[in-house]
């Protein structure tokens, strides 16, 4: 058996798979069940300081090609977060990544400060949700200045808890955004949130299916985009730890993400395509590949694409 463990921002994970934010992410019991199903760590659904209502239903639709969601980031606020995160942490299960969100820069700081009191292993900052634009305008992840401002605000309020910024693929130059948050003190980045927003029309009723009309697009077709972005960021910022998220369904997908530079691999829509046992399925496939390739430690694969052990990246 290969050693699947990795260390990300100083936190040890038994395997590189983390539940992506927004999926099965509302309660401690749900997170524990995800770990039971094989995940190396979990990310909460985005946490707000105060209660935030999501969009009316329908909020998620999916088919064999893609998923489109505009759940609208519902959450009951920081008190519920404290209860659920506290319960989860008391079980001493796998690492907890608390994902936070806010509408204004200073509110990111306040939310981060409250969430830091819970002592999650890592704080991930959602500055890239594409389905609340009506409410908050263009995501902070679309501007070098805004992304850095949020990062600085969060970093100064959370002590030594590592901070990961979740980036948006819907930008001209993702490397510039990654560099701006790294310069502002981010300990890592998550590449990437959903793309779009996109829209789906029901032709019989001649209306958009999602109540919010538009929503973030995810699914297996996103993987090549995530792989390219991770490779670009790793090449420009080789020391910045990366959570690779986007269209990962199989062990081969996860290894591909790691080879271009991801230390952790987020799995979200994969739960839809392969069921709640997707984590165990992926780690089994990673083990099978490692055996075939005689790889003893999966962490040795991180970023090999960029050095002599892998094929050189020369676009």
């Amino acid at each position: 058996m290969a050693d699947l463990s990795v260390t990300f921002c100083g936190v040890k994970f038994k395997n590189p798979l983390v539940l992506a934010s927004g999926i099965l992410g509302i309660t401690a019991s749900s997170w524990r069940n995800v770990v039971k199903n094989g995940a190396g760590g979990i990310t909460t659904k985005s946490l707000w300081l105060e209660e935030h209502r999501g969009h009316p239903n329908p909020v998620i639709i999916a088919n064999e090609h893609y998923m489109l969601n505009a759940v609208g980031v519902p959450d009951a606020g920081v008190q519920k977060a404290q209860e659920e995160c506290g319960k989860y942490l008391a079980w001493k299960s796998s690492p907890l990544i608390a994902n936070i969100i806010a509408g204004r820069v200073q509110d990111f700081g306040k939310t981060a400060e409250e969430i830091a009191k819970i002592k999650p292993h890592i704080i991930e900052v959602n500055i890239s949700c594409p389905n609340v634009e009506d409410e908050f305008g263009k995501p902070f992840a679309c501007s070098v200045g805004d992304a850095a401002a949020v990062t600085r605000e969060v970093k100064k309020r959370v002590g030594n808890i590592p901070v990961v910024i979740k980036l948006s693929p819907n930008v001209e130059n993702i490397v510039a955004i990654a560099r701006s948050v790294a310069d502002a003190g981010a300990d890592g980045v998550n590449v990437m949130n959903t793309i779009g927003p996109g829209m789906s029309i029901n032709i019989d009723t001649r209306t958009p299916v999602l109540a919010n009309k538009v929503g973030g697009l995810s699914g297996p077709a996103l993987k090549p985009l995530a792989v390219k972005y991770i490779a670009d960021i790793r090449r420009a910022l080789p020391k910045l730890p990366i959570i690779g998220t986007g269209g990962v369904l199989t062990g081969e997908d996860a290894i591909e993400m790691m080879m271009v530079g991801a230390t952790l691999v987020g799995v979200g829509t994969g739960v839809y395509y392969r069921g709640p046992q997707v984590f165990k399925k992926i780690t089994d496939e990673m083990q099978a590949w490692c055996k075939k390739e005689n790889v003893k430690r999966v962490r040795d694969l991180i970023g090999v694409f960029h050095n002599g052990n892998g094929r050189r990246f020369e676009p």
Binding site: L24, A28, W31, R32, N33, I60, A62, M67, Y272
Partner: peptide
């Protein structure tokens, strides 16, 4: 329930954490 296909997590029950939609 929101999605009804095991993704949104709104119908997960304590303490098992399983979804009631699936």
């Amino acid at each position: 329930m929101k999605c009804a296909f095991g993704i949104c997590g709104n119908c997960c029950v304590d303490d098992l954490g399983i979804t009631m939609c699936q």
